[in-house]
Each structure stands twice: as structure tokens, then as C-alpha cells.
């Protein structure tokens, strides 16, 4: 039992990634407010970044600033992918929020249930 616990403690960032991604998913499923859904999407996305950056890390490594005879370094490739993904994430968030503003101007509410009600009545 103790050994199984140690396995999880030694991989604490992986466990954090899994827990946080599930919280983000919960927000996506459950939150009635559309803005909170977008926040949930961002939390989910950020947890995946944690998985990538954890994979790139190595005990005693420095950041990937290459010097003669230096090292070891963290893997720069996942960092680049995450940098790209952060910027893409901001683009997606801004588009999603623009759609939320539009939904509000059409239906006068941010609640998913109310929007569905109004659509059913039309």
C-alpha cells in the first residue's frame, strides 16, 4: 500500500495534471454560465501544458541555454510546443468570448439553460 502511494508521490506533477484536467472537464460539463465554461476550457488546456513541460524536465537540468560544456538541459521542444499552444489558446479564448458576447446580445442571457429555453420558444 505504502509503495503504491510512493509511486504517485514520485509522479506528483502527473497526478496534478490529471486532477486539474478533470476539474476543467467538470467545468465544461456542469457550468451553466458560458464565461465559466470558457474558463474551464482554459484550465483543461493548461493542465495538458503541465504534462508536456513535466516530460521535458530532468533532475538537475537547467533551462535550454546551450553553453560549451554545460548541461544537462531541459528538452526545448515541449517548451516550444507549449509556447505555440498558449498563443493559440489565447486566440481560441478571444474567439469564444466574442461568441459569448454575441450570444448575450441575441438572447440577453449568459446561462446555457436560458438560451436553450429561448431557442425552444422561437
Amino acid at each position: 500500500m505504502m509503495e503504491a502511494f510512493d509511486v504517485f508521490v514520485a509522479r506528483y506533477y502527473h497526478v496534478t495534471f490529471m486532477v486539474v484536467s478533470c476539474i476543467g472537464l467538470y467545468m465544461l460539463i456542469d457550468s451553466a454560465n458560458l464565461v465559466k465554461k470558457v474558463i474551464g476550457l482554459n484550465i483543461f488546456q493548461m493542465s495538458v501544458f503541465l504534462f508536456f513541460v513535466t516530460a521535458a524536465y530532468r533532475e538537475g537540468a537547467g533551462p535550454a541555454l546551450i553553453t560549451e560544456g554545460g548541461g544537462p538541459y531541459a528538452n526545448p521542444l515541449p517548451h516550444v510546443i507549449v509556447l505555440t499552444a498558449i498563443v493559440v489558446g489565447v486566440s481560441l479564448t478571444s474567439l469564444a468570448l466574442a461568441l459569448v458576447v454575441r450570444v448575450y446580445s441575441e438572447y440577453g442571457t449568459l446561462s446555457e439553460d436560458r438560451v436553450e429555453e429561448v431557442m425552444a420558444n422561437e
Binding site: 509522479r11 506533477y13 530532468r58 533532475e59 537540468a61 528538452n75
Partner: peptide
């Protein structure tokens, strides 16, 4: 989780 490398492990495939 048990199949993943430990955080910071030098044997991690990515490094």
C-alpha cells in the same frame, strides 16, 4: 500513472 517516468528522472525518454 505507474507507467509514466518519475518527475525529473534521468531515464525519462524525452531527455
Amino acid at each position: 500513472v505507474p507507467a509514466l517516468p518519475e518527475v525529473g528522472s534521468p531515464d525519462s525518454p524525452a531527455v
